[in-house]
């Protein structure tokens, strides 16, 4: 046994293929990105080494970069304070209903999550369209025609409109994770509480929420990180505009590299973006760990 499980050649054969793919497509690109981030390369010709100039330029002079970061935080806040409380309550309701209906509702709320982002994004572009969009028509019917807007074209409304799309797209995921967590709470605990005369509200606040803490923690971390990583929906709906009002980091680096032919600069944003994601993940994990330790 020992001999077989210590065989260096076997270990190499088991680990190397996967590790090679990972290093090739995830690790090396980051290194390449750091290199290009220190150049002024525009896509053609030879890259000139310019040191940290791109990085200082981004951090001290690039408004769009900070705008993107701010938007990500606003989106994260919307997830945590609007989407998650609703999905949590809905998960509890679905769990309580039971039987066939439970499955039906569970399935319905997850449907938007299995449909391609390109479909749901283009669909929302149509819903928000100022000429034929569904939203403006609904406002007309409700006699609220005065509120009609070019939802994605107006700098004041573009970010909230985008956040609505993203909350719609991710609602099913948040719900599903809470729902699965609820399924892990043994029914006997509820029964015991009910026998002791606890009402529904009391049960939720003093049993469900404390027991769900680990799930809530994971789900909130996932939500904030996904807000930070947001790109596809922005790319397919507003492209970050008008101006930088709905810009996000991942989309911004892409636009800089491919549309403005500032490939070096784009890579510098890319490196900062990866750093922000890593730091944020660590910070969130640490933050929640210390909260949990209190209990």
């Amino acid at each position: 046994m020992h001999k077989l499980l210590k065989n260096k050649r076997t270990i190499f054969l088991l680990v190397a293929p996967g590790l090679a793919v990972f290093i090739f497509a995830v690790f090396i690109p980051i290194i390449v990105s750091i290199y290009y981030g220190m150049t002024d390369w525009g896509g053609i010709g030879k890259p000139n080494f310019i040191g940290m100039k791109n990085f200082t330029e981004i951090i001290f002079h690039d408004e769009a970069f900070w705008y993107s970061l701010r938007n990500a935080l606003l989106l994260g806040a919307a997830f945590v304070f609007i989407q998650h409380p609703i999905s949590f309550i809905f998960a509890i309701m679905i769990d309580k209903i039971g039987g066939k209906l439970e499955k039906v509702f569970r399935a319905i709320f997850f449907i938007p999550c299995v449909i391609s982002i390109i479909v749901t994004s283009k669909m929302w572009v149509s819903i928000y369209d100022p000429q034929y969009g569904l939203l403006n028509k609904v406002l007309d019917i409700l006699q609220l025609g005065a509120l009609k807007q070019d939802w994605l074209g107006n700098p004041k409304f573009v970010l909230p409109s985008l956040i609505v799309i993203l909350m719609w797209q991710g609602f099913g995921w948040a719900l599903l994770i809470y729902y699965s967590g609820l399924k892990g709470i043994p029914e006997e605990i509820y029964e015991a509480a009910r026998i002791d005369g606890a009402g529904t509200f009391k049960i939720i606040t003093s049993i469900t929420i404390p027991l769900m803490k680990p799930v809530i923690r994971v789900n909130i971390i996932l939500a904030v990180i996904s807000a930070l990583k947001q790109m596809e929906t922005v790319f397919l709906t507003t492209g970050g505009g008008p101006g930088s009002t709905s810009q996000f980091l991942a989309n911004y680096l892409y636009v800089k590299a491919f549309n403005s032919a500032q490939y070096g600069y784009g890579n510098a944003i890319s490196v900062l973006f990866v750093i922000v994601c890593l730091v944020m993940t660590f910070v969130l994990n640490k933050m929640f760990k210390s909260i949990n330790a209190e209990y």
Binding site: N7, G18, F273
Partner: peptide
Amino acid sequence: MRWKLKKTILTFVLLGMMIPIHGTLLPNYI
């Protein structure tokens, strides 16, 4: 299996869960 570097390499691979795909778009394109 029993080998020396397994903890280090496992941590290295798991770190990948935190790296956003978008951070690799530009370099991988080239």
